[in-house]
Amino acid sequence: MSATLPYGVTAAALIALGLFGLVAQAAVLRKILACNLLGGGVFLLFGVVARRGATAADAVPQAIVITGLVVAFAATALAVALALRLHQITGAATIAGEPESGPRGE
Protein backbone atom coordinates (compact mmCIF):
# COMPACT_ATOMS: atom_id res chain seq x y z
CA MET A 1 0.00 0.00 0.00
CA SER A 2 2.79 2.35 1.00
CA ALA A 3 4.36 2.46 -2.44
CA THR A 4 1.26 3.40 -4.32
CA LEU A 5 1.07 7.06 -3.36
CA PRO A 6 4.52 8.24 -4.56
CA TYR A 7 4.41 6.06 -7.65
CA GLY A 8 0.85 7.04 -8.46
CA VAL A 9 1.86 10.68 -8.41
CA THR A 10 5.00 9.85 -10.38
CA ALA A 11 2.95 8.09 -13.01
CA ALA A 12 0.63 11.09 -13.36
CA ALA A 13 3.62 13.43 -13.58
CA LEU A 14 5.32 11.25 -16.18
CA ILE A 15 2.18 11.29 -18.27
CA ALA A 16 1.98 15.06 -18.02
CA LEU A 17 5.66 15.35 -19.00
CA GLY A 18 5.18 13.01 -21.92
CA LEU A 19 2.16 14.86 -23.22
CA PHE A 20 3.94 18.18 -22.82
CA GLY A 21 6.97 16.89 -24.67
CA LEU A 22 4.92 15.52 -27.51
CA VAL A 23 3.15 18.79 -28.02
CA ALA A 24 5.97 21.21 -27.40
CA GLN A 25 8.99 19.45 -28.92
CA ALA A 26 9.69 19.78 -32.61
CA ALA A 27 12.47 17.26 -33.26
CA VAL A 28 11.29 13.80 -34.19
CA LEU A 29 13.69 12.08 -31.84
CA ARG A 30 12.51 14.17 -28.90
CA LYS A 31 8.96 13.30 -29.74
CA ILE A 32 9.84 9.62 -29.70
CA LEU A 33 11.45 10.05 -26.29
CA ALA A 34 8.39 11.90 -25.02
CA CYS A 35 6.21 9.10 -26.31
CA ASN A 36 8.24 6.64 -24.32
CA LEU A 37 7.98 8.76 -21.20
CA LEU A 38 4.24 8.83 -21.68
CA GLY A 39 4.17 5.07 -22.13
CA GLY A 40 6.36 4.58 -19.06
CA GLY A 41 3.91 6.63 -17.03
CA VAL A 42 0.94 4.62 -18.25
CA PHE A 43 2.63 1.33 -17.45
CA LEU A 44 3.65 2.60 -14.05
CA LEU A 45 0.03 3.41 -13.37
CA PHE A 46 -0.82 -0.21 -14.10
CA GLY A 47 1.88 -1.17 -11.61
CA VAL A 48 0.34 1.11 -9.00
CA VAL A 49 -3.07 -0.36 -9.67
CA ALA A 50 -1.63 -3.85 -9.33
CA ARG A 51 0.06 -3.00 -6.04
CA ARG A 52 -3.05 -1.58 -4.40
CA GLY A 53 -4.38 -5.09 -3.82
CA ALA A 54 -4.36 -6.08 -0.20
CA THR A 55 -2.07 -9.12 -0.07
CA ALA A 56 0.05 -9.75 -3.13
CA ALA A 57 0.62 -7.83 -6.29
CA ASP A 58 -2.11 -8.42 -8.88
CA ALA A 59 -0.71 -10.52 -11.70
CA VAL A 60 -3.15 -9.34 -14.35
CA PRO A 61 -1.91 -5.74 -14.70
CA GLN A 62 1.65 -7.00 -14.62
CA ALA A 63 0.96 -9.36 -17.47
CA ILE A 64 -0.69 -6.48 -19.29
CA VAL A 65 2.37 -4.28 -18.81
CA ILE A 66 4.68 -6.95 -20.19
CA THR A 67 2.54 -7.29 -23.29
CA GLY A 68 2.28 -3.52 -23.50
CA LEU A 69 6.06 -3.06 -23.28
CA VAL A 70 6.59 -5.30 -26.26
CA VAL A 71 3.98 -3.47 -28.31
CA ALA A 72 5.40 -0.09 -27.27
CA PHE A 73 8.85 -1.20 -28.29
CA ALA A 74 7.58 -2.25 -31.67
CA ALA A 75 5.97 1.16 -32.07
CA THR A 76 9.21 2.90 -31.12
CA ALA A 77 11.15 0.82 -33.59
CA LEU A 78 8.64 1.72 -36.27
CA ALA A 79 8.81 5.41 -35.46
CA VAL A 80 12.60 5.37 -35.52
CA ALA A 81 12.64 3.54 -38.83
CA LEU A 82 10.22 6.07 -40.32
CA ALA A 83 12.20 8.98 -38.99
CA LEU A 84 15.46 7.57 -40.33
CA ARG A 85 14.02 6.97 -43.77
CA LEU A 86 12.53 10.45 -43.86
CA HIS A 87 15.88 11.89 -42.80
CA GLN A 88 17.69 9.77 -45.35
CA ILE A 89 15.55 11.08 -48.21
CA THR A 90 14.94 14.69 -47.27
CA GLY A 91 17.38 15.45 -44.47
CA ALA A 92 14.46 16.60 -42.32
CA ALA A 93 14.44 15.97 -38.62
CA THR A 94 10.93 17.26 -37.99
CA ILE A 95 7.46 16.49 -39.25
CA ALA A 96 6.41 20.10 -39.54
CA GLY A 97 5.15 21.41 -42.86
CA GLU A 98 3.73 19.34 -45.68
CA PRO A 99 5.35 19.27 -49.08
CA GLU A 100 2.86 18.48 -51.84
CA SER A 101 4.86 15.48 -52.96
CA GLY A 102 8.45 14.77 -52.20
CA PRO A 103 10.96 12.93 -54.35
CA ARG A 104 10.56 9.22 -54.57
CA GLY A 105 12.74 7.12 -52.32
CA GLU A 106 16.01 5.98 -53.79
Binding site: L19, L22, V23, A24, A26, I95, A96
Partner: peptide, 11 residues
Protein backbone atom coordinates in the same frame (compact mmCIF):
# COMPACT_ATOMS: atom_id res chain seq x y z
CA UNK B 1 -3.77 21.43 -38.62
CA UNK B 2 -0.33 22.47 -37.37
CA UNK B 3 1.17 20.01 -34.90
CA UNK B 4 1.25 22.00 -31.66
CA UNK B 5 -2.23 23.38 -32.23
CA UNK B 6 -3.67 19.90 -32.75
CA UNK B 7 -1.83 18.64 -29.69
CA UNK B 8 -3.26 21.47 -27.61
CA UNK B 9 -6.74 20.73 -28.97
CA UNK B 10 -6.36 17.16 -27.79
CA UNK B 11 -5.44 18.25 -24.28
Amino acid sequence: RAWPAAGLSLL
